[in-house]
Computed example of a mutant assay.
Amino acid sequence: MGMKSLLNYTINVDVAILILLVKVSIMANSTSSGPKDMSTAFLIRVDQSGQGDYTKIQDAIDSVPSNNSELEKIVVPADKPYITLSGTEASDTIITYNDGGEILSESPTVKILASEFVGRYLTIQNTYGKTGKGVALRVSGDKAAFYGCKIISYQDTLLDDAGRHYYKNCYIQGATDFVFGNAASLFERCHLHSVSEGNGAITAQKRESPLENTGYVFLGCKITGNGGAILGRPWGSYSRVIYALTYMSGVVQAEGWNDWGDADKQKTVYYGEYKCYGPGANRDKRAKWSNTLSNEEAAPFLNKNMIGGRSWLRPAPTHFKRIDQKS
């Protein structure tokens, strides 16, 4: 057959169902050397009434060729890169499930295992609630980006597991360790909302070696909530979290950081704040082993270099075709 042609896929969901509400799209690209033109996507319709190409989003994802170089849970498998799941507005594009337990990899409402994934304008939630750990979103693939999404649960909301990730204008809600894992991620202009009734932690970053280029950077973000919250605690001995130019409401407790009962980690973690503001940003009573960053120290975390984002972040497609036009 010769060289594969470039294929993008868009899947629209137009029928309200328990798990998904209106207008969801999935876009993928197929070429042996990666995407070359992401401006056009083929359209696949998902309609529960049977009027579309598929009745379930997972079936639409499964229809994308493996090793593509183009009330359900959603899994984007590792062998299907270059898929985008996109809604029109997060408030009316909702993927929800109710599951939880100690096996964190099993409870997520949405699992992203593939590289080069993009999520736009979605609400992804786990309604397991206060009964235990219930992950809404697990991101384990490299080069994943989310724009304008809402990610909601109570404990362990976002398993930002592995790889390089970018979140922009996202809303993330939880009570305990609600951003956790060992990815290298930049959160830009995101809204973190704590629903903790006591002193829940916003982050539990798992960097385990000084040689790992992982960690979380919150740049120009906003922290709100009720009760009390700390900025982070170390899941890994070399946990790394930076808040820069971020508004912190009074929900952030004075000490700011916690060593999770292991004083030895105070010597190895890297927790920093740079020019944050608001009633919760006062560092007078902060944990002494956390850092007030200078301009020079903060500079590496104030752009996309940490995640190499300038080489892989891509714009949304601007043209769409029906799937039956691909040949």
Results as ranks from 00 to 15, higher is better:
residue 161 D to S: 14
residue 54 Y to R: 01
residue 57 I to V: 15
residue 196 S to G: 02
residue 257 W to C: 06
residue 301 F to D: 05
residue 261 G to Y: 05
residue 93 T to Y: 05
residue 88 T to S: 13
residue 156 D to R: 15
residue 257 W to H: 11
residue 204 A to E: 10
residue 106 E to A: 14
residue 42 F to E: 03
residue 80 K to E: 03
residue 145 A to V: 14
residue 10 T to A: 12
residue 257 W to V: 11
residue 5 S to N: 10
residue 299 A to V: 02
residue 267 K to M: 09
residue 172 I to S: 00
residue 25 S to K: 12
residue 126 N to D: 09
residue 34 G to E: 02
residue 145 A to S: 14
residue 85 L to K: 00
residue 118 V to K: 08
residue 49 S to Q: 09
residue 28 A to L: 09
residue 188 E to W: 06
residue 10 T to C: 11
residue 291 N to V: 08
residue 311 S to I: 09
residue 25 S to W: 06
residue 265 K to D: 13
residue 292 T to R: 09
residue 182 N to R: 07
residue 301 F to R: 09
residue 63 S to R: 05
residue 205 Q to P: 12
residue 131 T to W: 06
residue 278 G to D: 02
residue 102 E to D: 15
residue 319 H to A: 12
residue 58 Q to N: 07
residue 65 P to S: 05
residue 18 L to F: 11
residue 42 F to L: 14
residue 76 V to F: 02
residue 47 D to V: 10
residue 282 N to Y: 01
residue 8 N to A: 12
residue 304 K to Q: 11
residue 63 S to N: 03
residue 119 G to K: 03
residue 262 D to Q: 14
residue 115 S to K: 12
residue 156 D to H: 15
residue 70 E to F: 04
residue 116 E to C: 00
residue 117 F to L: 11
residue 220 G to K: 08
residue 160 D to S: 12
residue 137 L to R: 02
residue 114 A to Q: 03
residue 235 W to L: 13
residue 97 Y to D: 12
residue 34 G to S: 02
residue 220 G to D: 12
residue 105 S to V: 10
residue 196 S to W: 02
residue 144 A to S: 15
residue 14 D to H: 09
residue 102 E to W: 08
residue 110 V to S: 00
residue 25 S to C: 11
residue 124 I to F: 04
residue 199 N to C: 07
residue 216 Y to G: 01
residue 79 D to K: 03
residue 79 D to R: 12
residue 85 L to V: 15
residue 68 N to G: 10
residue 72 E to M: 08
residue 68 N to Y: 10
residue 315 P to D: 15
residue 299 A to T: 10
residue 82 Y to N: 09
residue 273 E to A: 08
residue 173 Q to Y: 04
residue 296 E to I: 06
residue 124 I to T: 06
residue 324 D to C: 08
residue 83 I to V: 15
residue 244 A to D: 04
residue 179 V to W: 01
residue 140 S to F: 08
residue 278 G to T: 09
residue 62 D to I: 03
residue 50 G to R: 08
residue 168 K to N: 11
residue 65 P to M: 01
residue 57 I to T: 06
residue 203 T to F: 15
residue 255 E to M: 11
residue 94 I to E: 05
residue 171 Y to K: 13
residue 201 A to L: 01
residue 202 I to P: 01
residue 64 V to Y: 01
residue 154 Y to C: 13
residue 73 K to F: 14
residue 327 S to A: 13
residue 59 D to G: 04
residue 240 R to A: 07
residue 112 I to K: 00
residue 92 D to N: 14
residue 131 T to D: 14
residue 254 A to W: 09
residue 26 I to K: 02
residue 209 S to Q: 05
residue 237 S to A: 15
residue 197 E to W: 06
residue 162 A to C: 07
residue 94 I to H: 03
residue 67 N to G: 13
residue 305 N to R: 09
